[in-house]
Nucleic acid binder design. Structure first.
Length: 888
RNA sequence: GCCGGGGUGGCGAAAUUGGCAGACGCCCAGGACUUAGAAUCCUGUGUCCGUCAAGGACGUGCGGGUUCAAGUCCCGCCUCCGGCACCA
């Protein structure tokens, strides 16, 4: 029997200290740091937890409440694992190089290093304000020589390595030189450039250097690049969004420059395969797979007057349907094949196509353009002569830059054929349908049965590709081939504010700096504005550019700097040993801490940072420098916090330009950091975008006030002693909450962590006002609640802990241990349905027999009413949950 | 166009394997306290019928389906968000 509890209004209670978080929060933070509470120990015997936020670039705007969405949960996790007895690494540093800082510095006529120092100090202040427990003794800054020295060191490791596809790993370049000198490239499958041992041995220094560039994992080549005319720099493919620079928004132009690349494409297969072993959101894995863009098909040679023209196709089963060929405008055969009477038109077309930007080509969309070269190719499967065209819908950068056009089964070829009145031939017939080339309105790119294909007629779709490919190989016409959309990672930036590339150009070719000559330091200069020519501003600094090597050779230093994704591709390793000036990190430390157990940040880095960091990790693994193959075991992306104001029926993003940014500073001033932290967790599921509501923050503030009063307000007088049943219920609620909270923290369900703690608070407040509990019971409840609160509301937990007379610090206590017996339920509510509608709810003891449950269920008055006079067809019984009576 | 992920009260949202839809909080209303307000506390709060009862009908973007039972599974749409975009 439940009794109605009357709770006296607060004014009747004896006075208690008021919850004013602003009075104690800052003081505790100072004390914790002074006492080095969050200083991480080196590798030891304890289990470790490495919990990391994405490397932030500190901006002048500081942190908004949206940014706090990821920093709070990772902090909660870190604090939780410390209390669980783990050795926890939870560090922070600054991705300080790069355009934003440099551009801001140019605009404000100051030095980017100064700006970064100022901005990062502000971030640090804000992190402290909201109680984030970073180990600041491990703070790093990627723009300091102490850091980028090792970025350069890793660059050299890549420079001095090549990918041996026979062993499927990177090896030292010296192993390649030894092999070239003995056997040339004859044993190296798919060598990009082939050479005999004699030819290699006859090479001079410069020739060797240039030849090795075809193999090195860090190499330079002339390349058409994405040129951002506003930021005056080259952008990686990943940094071009809709044909515009991702930061400046300017239309990207084409430009040919000598560029540095990392040969990430060698790792395509491993980057795809190893995704299976890591706990990442599926959509991020999918984005990476799509970005790498693996497709399996065949390469086939078509004979022409200029020699064999190699094409790539994923549909070798449609070879008999090829009615023309198309070359990309940049294809080297265009010049060779164009016949005299077509040359003028071809040249004109190529010139126009090359002048167009990628965007212009794309904007013209599906409207195909192209010209006939006058030349023909021979289809190797049937000896047919088919015309060769040039068209810009074929890209030089994918496959071989040439295609066989099968208009009946490819939509693009179909459009092209219709526009230029080229023949269309059906070679795949769908089941139960008959395609007629003249009447088709679009291509049929799907599976079917092969027709018009000689000996393959009648071959069904499931084996067609495989059979034809095998046949091509037997006949030596073609071969199976895997292609990737993925390109090598371009890292050159013609800017000042980045890691210098440790290479010197001499008359004898490139010379890599010796490791012990690192770092190559950025010169301290007044003017570092970008040049309009595309050269780095470093090129205008003679003291930097002109070098004399130890052997007396004179050279020109490389003036490009590395894009910042180089810095962020290994910073998570540096945190394990951030002050080491002998090596990037101790082997023992890096192998103890890595991989990162939980890595948290926004989804916008899905294909850039996250792919590059995986690549560097694999290279370092191949070279025996680290012992793990993936850097981030568990990845989670936070959802965005949107502005509370709707515009056109939608919530907007927070941005300085829209003037709708809400800062943690103003929220802390009003409600305290603990309430802000709780609200950041409570606002919604971690991964979901959601609008900010300051009223909701008022709610978590009210909750914390109730918790405060629960601990610090004296109990009412003259309350009855709690009976056995009340004690049991109290402990049950407590331990059920503990189980739920631990499960939810591990599952990243922070919103339900808060709601279950709110529910427990409500239970305890009622209990406190209705009975006096034995000290042991009440003490257990209070202590358990406080320890569960410690990671979430660290300031309040410490304040209450101390005021209650406990020894400092609450954050050095063991996390409470869940008692399964106490949490066990004795009864459950059986839902009784009649024809799927709920007609009754009855309390039954756990473990009741089916017969017992039925008896009680049919005893229920309302159930009786619905069953009476009807025939019972069946009864579905789900033990411990539900009974459904099906009647007619 | 292709590939993902969503759509649940006035609002933010919960809901192991299909098993009580709406936990928790906000807002709002009524009440207690107060000279008054703030704060705090109590009660109510999906919609509709019913007497503010008992009880019932409807309800998770729309339309179908599977099932004793569907927010959850299947088919077809609508719509929002993200990614890719002539990838041969």
């Amino acid at each position: 029997m439940e009794t109605q509890v009357t709770i006296p209004p607060s004014h009747e209670r004896t006075s208690a200290p008021k919850y004013v978080p602003q009075d104690f929060e800052a003081g505790w933070m100072q004390k914790w740091e002074a006492d080095e509470l969050y200083k991480t120990a080196p590798a030891d015997e304890r289990p470790k937890a490495y919990i990391l936020d994405f490397f932030p670039y500190p901006s002048g705007d500081g942190l908004s409440v949206g940014h706090c969405r990821n920093y709070v949960p990772t902090d909660v996790l870190s604090r939780y694992f410390r209390m669980k007895g783990y050795n926890v690494l939870h560090p922070m540093g600054w991705d300080a190089f790069g355009l934003p800082a440099e551009n801001a510095a140019i605009k404000m006529k100051t030095n980017p290093a100064k700006l970064i120092a100022q901005y990062s100090a502000n971030y640090k202040r804000q992190f402290r304000l909201i109680g984030i427990s970073f180990d600041w003794s491990r703070e790093i800054n990627s723009s300091t020589p102490e850091y980028y020295r090792w970025t350069q060191w890793i660059f050299l490791k890549l420079y001095h390595a090549w990918y041996d596809s026979r062993e499927n790993r990177a090896r030292s370049i010296s192993t390649l030189e030894t092999e070239l000198s003995a056997n040339g490239t004859q044993n190296i499958p798919n060598a990009r450039v082939e050479i005999s041992a004699d030819a290699w041995n006859a090479f001079n220094k410069k020739q060797r250097s240039e030849f090795l560039s075809n193999f090195r994992l860090a190499y330079r080549k002339p390349s058409v690049v994405n040129w951002d005319p506003v930021d005056k720099t080259v952008l990686a493919n990943e940094e071009v969004v809709d044909g515009r620079g991702w930061r400046s928004g300017a239309l990207v132009e084409k430009k040919v420059l000598q560029q540095w690349f990392f040969r990430i494409t060698e790792y395509s297969e491993r980057l795809i395969n190893d995704l299976d072993a890591i706990d990442w959101p599926e959509h991020i894995k999918l984005m990476q797979r799509n970005w790498i863009g693996k497709s399996v098909g065949a390469e086939v040679d078509f004979q022409t007057d200029a020699g064999a023209l190699r094409i790539f196709t994923t549909r070798p089963d449609t070879l008999w349907g090829a009615t023309f060929m198309v070359l990309a405008p940049e294809h080297p055969y265009v010049e060779k094949l164009a016949t005299a009477d077509h040359k003028a038109r071809v040249n004109q077309y190529v010139k126009e196509a090359k002048a167009k930007t990628e965007v212009e080509r794309a904007e013209e969309g599906k409207d195909k353009t192209g010209v006939f070269t006058g030349a023909y190719a021979t289809n190797p499967v049937n000896g047919e002569k088919i015309p060769i065209w040039v068209a810009d819908y074929v890209m030089m950068s994918y496959g071989t830059g040439a295609i066989m056009a099968v208009p009946a089964h490819d939509q693009r070829d179909f459009e092209f054929a219709r526009k230029f009145h080229l023949p269309i031939r059906v070679v795949i017939q769908p089941e139960g349908e008959s395609l007629n080339a003249d009447e088709m309105e679009r291509a049929f790119p799907h599976d079917g049965v092969m027709v018009n294909s000689g000996i393959f007629d009648g071959t069904s779709a499931d084996v067609a590709v495989e059979n034809v490919t095998r046949w091509l190989e037997e006949k030596s016409i073609g071969a199976k081939r895997v292609n990737y959309k993925f390109r090598d990672w371009g890292i050159s930036r013609q800017r000042y504010w980045g890691t210098p590339i440790p290479i010197v150009h001499t008359d004898d070719g490139e010379v890599a700096m010796a490791e012990n000559n690192l770092p190559i330091e950025l010169p301290n200069v007044d003017s570092y504005e970008p040049t309009a020519t595309g050269e780095s501003p470093l090129a205008n600094i003679p003291e930097f550019v002109n070098v004399t090597l130890p052997d007396g050779t004179r050279g020109r230093r490389e003036t490009d700097t590395m894009g910042t994704f180089a810095c962020s591709s290994w910073y998570f390793m540096r945190f394990t040993d951030p002050r080491n000036d002998q090596e990037p990190f101790q082997t023992k430390e890096v192998n103890y801490w890595l991989p990162v157990d939980t890595y948290v940040g926004g989804a916008e880095h899905a294909v850039m940072h996250l792919l590059y960091a995986r690549f560097w990790t694999k290279v370092l693994y191949d070279l025996g420098i680290v012992s793990f193959i993936e850097p981030f075991q568990r990845l989670r992306n936070q959802g965005m916090i949107l502005s509370p104001q709707m515009k056109d029926g939608k919530y907007e993003k927070m941005s300085k330009s829209k003037g709708n940014v809400i800062t943690p500073d103003e929220m802390v001033e009003q409600f305290g950091a603990d309430a802000l932290r709780a609200y950041e967790m409570f606002i919604s599921d971690f991964t979901v975008a959601t609008p900010w509501q300051t009223d909701g923050l008022a709610g978590t503030h009210r909750w914390l006030t109730r918790v405060w009063n629960l601990f610090l307000e004296p109990a009412r007088e003259n309350l009855p002693q709690a009976n056995e049943e009340q004690i049991k219920l109290l402990r049950r609620a407590l331990h059920q909450t503990l189980r739920k909270v631990e499960g939810d923290i591990n599952a990243f369900a922070f919103n339900t962590v808060i709601s279950s703690l709110m529910t427990l608070t409500n239970v305890l407040v009622k209990a406190k006002d209705s009975a006096t509990y034995p000290d042991a019971v009440w003490g257990e409840a209070m202590k358990t609640l406080l320890l569960m609160l410690a990671p979430i509301a660290p300031f309040m937990a410490e304040e209450i802990w101390t005021r209650s007379g406990n020894a400092y610090s609450v954050h050095q206590q063991k996390y409470p241990v869940y008692d399964a017996d106490a949490a066990k339920e004795e009864t459950f509510t059986l839902i009784v349905q009649v024809n799927g509608k709920v007609r009754g709810k009855i309390e039954l003891p756990v473990g009741v027999s089916e017969e017992g449950a039925k008896e009680k269920a049919f005893d229920d008055a309302n159930v009786k009413k619905w069953v009476e006079g009807k025939t019972i067809a069946s009864v579905v019984y789900v033990p411990g949950r539900l009974m459904n009576v099906v009647v007619k």
